[in-house]
Design a protein around this nucleic acid. Structure first.
Lengths: 371, 371
DNA sequence: TTGTAAGCGTTATCAT
DNA sequence: ATGATAACGCTTACAA
C-alpha cells in the first residue's frame, strides 16, 4: 500500500485532462520507463514492490495509455481501416458488422470510410485511412480504380478484399462462392420446372462479383442445355439484362417479353442482389403479377423482408457475418506477422426456398412447346 | 469496353515509408518550422521564394502531415466518435450515413463503435473512442446506462445525442419529432375510418424515443375521444402491446383479439419501427390476413421494401439523412468553439400513404357495433 | 532491476 | 521572415 494520502478526488473540475504516464510515475514514485515496462512487459523485469505501487497508481488515476502516442512511437495504431463502397447496401453493412465485431474482440478499432458509391474516391479513402496509421485495410470497394492498388502497395500495409477483386491488387480475398451460389439458384429453378431464365444484374463493368455471377449463370445454363438436348428434354434458355433505372421501369418490357416468349417453358428471373430484387419486385407489382405465379423468382441476398413480399421470395443467403469475420481474421493473421501468400476464401451460399419459386406444371397453361 | 490495358508501374517498393516534415525541410533547404508555417499559416509570414521551394518539395515528396502527430501536439485529432446501438438497424445506418458524409466534408473522419445492442458496453465504447482523442461524440446508444453520461462529461468533449435522450446528459439532441409523427399516424388512421387502434412497440424501458411515441399515442387518442364523445361519434380506443418475440408469435393473440373486438369500428395497428413492422407483417401473413383488408396498418420508418409488402405499407418516414447531418453539424459547431446551450432539434416525419391503410366502410363487414 | 535520455512527427515559443 | 528548441505522451536503447 503506497501511503499517499494526497486528496486527489476533487472531480468537480469540468475539463479534467487525462492522466499521463508521467502522472502515474510521479504518484508511484518511479520513472516513466518503469511504468511503461509494467504496462507492456508485465512478465519480465519487475520487482514485486514496485509493480504493486505502479499498479495502485494506475488504478487510482484511472490511467489508460494514449493510443495516439503509442502509435506515433511504435508505428502501430491498433486501428483497422474499412473502406466500404456503399453504406446503404445491406450486404456491406452486414459484412461491416461481422468485421467490426472480430476487430473489437482482437482489440482493434475500426475506422470507416464510406465511398457513397463514388468510385473516384477510392484512393482518397485509402489515403485518409493510411494517414491515421491504420495497420491494415479491409476493402469492399467498387474495384473500379486500378490505381487504388498502387495506393495500398505504397503503404506496404496488408489488405483484404471483400466481395470484389481488385485488378493487380496483391491481397487476400474473401467472398461468396459466386459460381456455386448461382448453380444453386439455377438448379433450383430448373428443378421446379422453369425453363426460360432471365438474369437481372446491375452494370457488371469492373465489378468482379457481378461478372462472376453472370458468367456462372451463362455457363451453368449452357452446360445444362448441352446435357439435355439429346435426351429430348426441353432446352433451357439464358438471357441477361443489365438494369440501371432505379425504379425498374426499364424492366417491364423485358419481363413481358420473357413471359410471352414461353417457347421452352415457364419463365423465371434471377436477381443479382437486393437492389435488383427490389426492382424486379416493383416491376412485377406494376404489371399486376405475383411472383411465383406468373413468374418464378430467386434473388441473391436473403433480406429480412424477403419472406413478406408476395408469397415469400426465394433467395440465396450469403454468409455475410462470416465473410466479415473471416476478412477481419485474415487481416489479423497478417498483422501478427504471419507471412502467408495471398489466400482466396470462398464461402458457400445457401438457398432459402419460398413461394416465389413454386413448382410449376410441366406444361405451362396455354403454352405449347414447339420443337 | 472500358478495359484499361496499360501495364501498371510495377510497385516493387515493398515498404516505402511516408515522407516526414523533416524530409521536406531538408529537400527545400529550410527548417521544419518553416515548413510547418507554410502548411498552417500560409497567409502570414512568408517570403515568396521560400514558399515556392517548400511547395515544390511538398509536392515532390507527396508529403501529407501525420494526423497522429498533429493530434498529439495539438490535442485535436480531426476524429469524431460515433457510437451506434445496433449497426443492423436500418435507421442507425441511415443516420450514420448522413453523419459520416457531413463529417467527411468538414475534414473529419468517423470512428465507429457498434454496441450490438449491448447496453452494458456503452461506457466501453465511449472510453475506447475517447482514448483515440476523438474531438466529440455522436451517440445513438441504448440510453440505458446512466453512467455513460459521466463518462462523456469526464472527458469534457462535446456530444450530440441522436434519437434517444440520455438521463442527465448535457448535450444537444437531434431526433424525429415523435409526438408530431405519431399524430400524423393516428389522424391518418382515424380519417380512414379505423377506430380500434393497437400500438405495437419494443420494450420502452429506458428508451426515450419509444416512451415518447407511446405517450403520444395514448395522449392523442384520448384527446380525440374526449373531443368526439359528445358528438355521438364512435370513441376510438387505444391499446398498447410490447412485442418481444423476434418471430412475432406473441402477436397472434393480440391481433385476433383486436379484430374480433371491433366494438367501436375497424381495427388498425401502428408499429413503432421497422422491427415491429416486420413482426406485425409476419404475424398477419401467418394468420392469412392482408394488411389494409382485415387490418389497417401504419408503421414507423419508411423502408425501401415497404411498397412491396401486401398492398404496400403506409409508413411514417423519418428524415434520417437530415438527422445524421444535423447531428454532425451540431457537433461541428461546438468544435468550432461556439459555446451554445444544449439545443434540442426535432425534425418532422412524413406520412407515406399506401394500401395498408385503405379507407374502410363506416360499418365493417359482419361486425355490428353494439353500444 | 531501475533510471536517463533520445526520439516518433508535429506545432509553438522563443530568439535572431 | 526564419531557425533553433521544447514540448505532446509514449517506448526503448543504454547506463547505472
Amino acid at each position: 500500500m503506497p501511503t499517499d494520502l494526497t486528496p486527489h478526488t476533487v472531480s468537480t473540475a469540468t475539463a479534467e485532462t487525462r492522466a499521463t504516464i508521467a502522472d502515474v510515475a510521479r504518484l508511484a514514485g518511479v520513472s516513466k520507463a518503469t511504468v511503461s515496462r509494467f504496462l507492456n512487459h508485465r512478465d519480465t523485469l519487475l520487482s514485486p514492490g514496485i509493480a504493486a505501487r505502479v499498479e495502485a497508481a494506475v488504478t487510482e488515476l484511472g490511467y489508460v495509455p494514449s493510443p495516439m502516442a503509442q502509435a506515433l512511437k511504435r508505428g502501430r495504431s491498433r486501428l483497422i481501416g474499412l473502406v466500404v463502397a456503399d453504406i446503404s447496401n445491406p450486404f456491406s453493412v452486414a459484412v461491416l458488422r461481422g468485421a467490426e465485431k472480430a476487430c473489437q474482440e482482437a482489440g482493434y478499432l475500426v475506422m470507416l470510410f464510406n465511398l457513397g458509391n463514388d468510385g473516384a474516391r477510392e484512393r482518397e479513402g485509402i489515403e485518409a485511412l493510411a494517414s491515421y496509421q491504420v495497420e491494415g485495410f479491409i476493402l469492399n470497394t467498387l474495384g473500379t480504380d486500378p490505381k487504388a492498388a498502387d495506393e495500398v502497395a505504397r503503404h506496404g500495409k496488408p489488405a483484404v478484399l471483400v466481395d470484389r477483386k481488385h485488378p493487380e491488387m496483391q491481397a487476400d480475398f474473401v467472398s461468396l462462392d459466386n459460381a456455386d451460389a448461382m448453380r444453386l439458384a439455377v438448379d433450383h429453378l430448373l428443378e421446379r420446372g422453369y425453363r426460360e431464365l432471365l438474369y437481372v444484374t446491375e452494370a457488371t463493368a469492373g465489378v468482379s462479383s457481378r461478372q462472376e455471377r453472370e458468367a456462372a449463370f451463362r455457363a451453368h445454363l449452357s452446360g445444362y442445355a448441352a446435357a439435355h438436348t439429346d435426351v429430348g428434354d426441353l432446352a433451357a434458355s439464358a438471357r441477361v439484362v443489365e438494369s440501371s433505372d432505379a425504379h425498374g421501369a426499364d424492366l417491364h418490357a423485358h419481363l413481358e417479353a420473357l413471359r410471352s416468349l414461353g417457347k421452352a417453358g415457364p419463365a423465371a428471373v434471377i436477381a443479382s442482389n437486393a437492389v435488383t430484387t427490389l426492382r424486379v419486385a416493383t416491376a412485377c407489382a406494376a404489371l399486376g403479377w405475383t411472383l411465383g405465379h406468373e413468374l418464378g423468382f430467386v434473388g441473391f441476398d436473403d433480406t429480412e423482408w424477403a419472406p413478406l413480399v408476395g408469397p415469400g421470395l426465394t433467395t440465396i443467403a450469403q454468409p455475410t457475418d462470416d465473410i466479415g469475420r473471416v476478412a477481419a481474421s485474415c487481416l489479423l493473421d497478417h498483422l501478427q506477422g504471419r507471412k502467408l501468400p495471398p489466400r482466396q476464401i470462398l464461402l458457400p451460399g445457401r438457398l432459402v426456398a419460398r413461394g416465389s419459386s413454386q413448382a410449376v406444371a410441366a406444361e405451362p397453361a396455354g403454352v405449347i412447346t414447339s420443337a
